[in-house]
Amino acid sequence: MVETLAGCMFEDIQYADIQVEAAVGRGTFGVVFKAVWKGKDVAIKTIESDNERNAFLVELRQLSRVNHSNIVKLYGFCDNPVSI
């Protein structure tokens, strides 16, 4: 479960609403998948263990505060499985 982060604007997305297509990469804090959500091509990043939860929350907080054409747009998060 992801706790509410003060001052952060993003949507609570139901994982069932996402059509996951394929894994495209693996990083330090999880796996990235290509997916479709509300008719848009999106990237979904999932964490693989509870040890990655704090890094996930930091990334969620940082992405929720920026809006720039050179930075990936955060649409929201899922809490089961934990994903952005």
Rank of each mutant, 00 (worst) to 15 (best):
V58T: 15
R53W: 05
K34M: 15
V32L: 07
I47G: 00
V32C: 13
I47V: 04
R26P: 02
V58G: 12
K34Y: 09
G30T: 04
R53A: 11
V24Q: 07
T46F: 00
N54Y: 12
N54K: 14
A35W: 01
F56A: 08
I44W: 00
V24F: 10
T46I: 01
V42C: 03
K34F: 10
R53G: 05
W37N: 10
A35L: 09
A23P: 10
W37C: 07
A43F: 01
V24D: 07
R26Q: 12
L57P: 05
A35P: 07
V36Y: 02
I44F: 00
V31E: 05
A43L: 05
I47Y: 01
A35F: 02
R53F: 11
N51K: 06
D41S: 08
E59C: 08
E52Y: 07
T46H: 01
K34H: 12
S49M: 11
F33Y: 08
K34V: 11
K45Y: 00
G30Y: 01
K45C: 00
G39M: 04
E21I: 08
D50C: 04
S49H: 10
A35I: 04
E21Q: 13
E59F: 08
R26M: 11
A55D: 15
V31K: 07
A55S: 15
N54P: 14
K45M: 01
V58E: 15
E48W: 06
V24G: 10
A22M: 10
A23T: 15
E21D: 10
R26T: 13
A35H: 08
R53I: 07
K45P: 00
F33G: 02
G27W: 13
R53Q: 06
W37G: 08
V31F: 03
R53C: 07
I44T: 03
E48D: 06
F29S: 09
I44Q: 00
I47K: 01
E59Q: 07
G39F: 02
R53S: 06
V24H: 12
F29L: 09
V42E: 02
V42Q: 02
G39Y: 01
K40C: 03
I47D: 00
G25D: 09
E59I: 05
A23D: 09
A22Q: 14
I47L: 03
R53P: 09
S49G: 10
N54Q: 14
V42R: 01
A43D: 04
